[in-house]
Design a protein around this nucleic acid. Sequence first.
DNA 1: GGAAATCATCAGCAATACTGACAATCATGG
DNA 2: CCATGATTGTCAGTATTGCTGATGATTTCC
Lengths: 158, 158
Amino acid sequence: MGADFPFSMPRFPEDAEREPLPESLTRYTGFLIAKAHQRLWTLFNDECKRLGFDVPCGGVLHLLDECGSMSQQQLGRKLRIDRTSMVKLVDALEEKKLARRRDHPEDRRIYLVEITAAGKKALAELQVVGDAMEKQLLSPFSEDEVKTIRRALLTLAG
Amino acid sequence: MGADFPFSMPRFPEDAEREPLPESLTRYTGFLIAKAHQRLWTLFNDECKRLGFDVPCGGVLHLLDECGSMSQQQLGRKLRIDRTSMVKLVDALEEKKLARRRDHPEDRRIYLVEITAAGKKALAELQVVGDAMEKQLLSPFSEDEVKTIRRALLTLAG
DNA sequence: GGAAATCATCAGCAATACTGACAATCATGG
DNA sequence: CCATGATTGTCAGTATTGCTGATGATTTCC
């Protein structure tokens, strides 16, 4: 799975203390998405922690690997994260040596954030667990259904 | 739409500063759900604010109306919200006179949280905007597709 | 009757998002 | 060439939020 934005998410409760969701709310797509998010975030953030970082950092790594170095604001716009939140995110990545700030050769206002070798290694591990989780999560659904789900979520995400 | 949990959610960016989501992340269902959540939360929380409360309060109102009075912990278990967070949520509802704490007739440890007349009125308004938004969000999809989406989200929500 | 569990609450801690400022730098038009 | 405005990264400060760990009151169970 991919990353998101940096914010505090209530943990998905353990099996013992989990009840079925109430019908008055599950009839709303927004509630279902919120609760799905809560569960997937918990699942995936635990995996990220095991790898030494967290979900938002993982998202930045994915993006840097796909699109190459870019400024912090570009990162933020693509991930829909506030510019000031991005500062701390890149700070964290730099501290963990997963990315670094480089001077932009032509525009000295900009730091080009680039992924390091260690970052690529971490990303590779992340992709393994992400792909595995993705496969597991979607296993109950047919190929056509997955297409529908993806299209729907893309539309809802705007 | 229904409510969720009380926590700080980054705002969905305005049209002007919004970019398409990067492919390296949209291939993950978790990322799509996170970003859909971000958008729907922003849309719906704005509506709730207009009505004088917020998304989590709306969720409690829905639940109280469906299932009747119940203890705070029961509310929390059904909504998957931490017990200590529920205290402040009910505080807020009580302050706005949308719900109130009543003594449990048989168990004096428990407060029965019950919806007030004002709460029912607010809920009715909330349901109007919620149903309208639901209809609009799902308008691009066929009845069968909606079924698939709902089933998928229910499964993912656990 | 006593131990353990349950409920609501609170203080305190750690994250997080965002506003509004700031300095440095670039771009544009006159 | 210069002045104005826009852009970038940063930071301080504010407001929220989730949760841990404790407390007191009660109930349940043995």
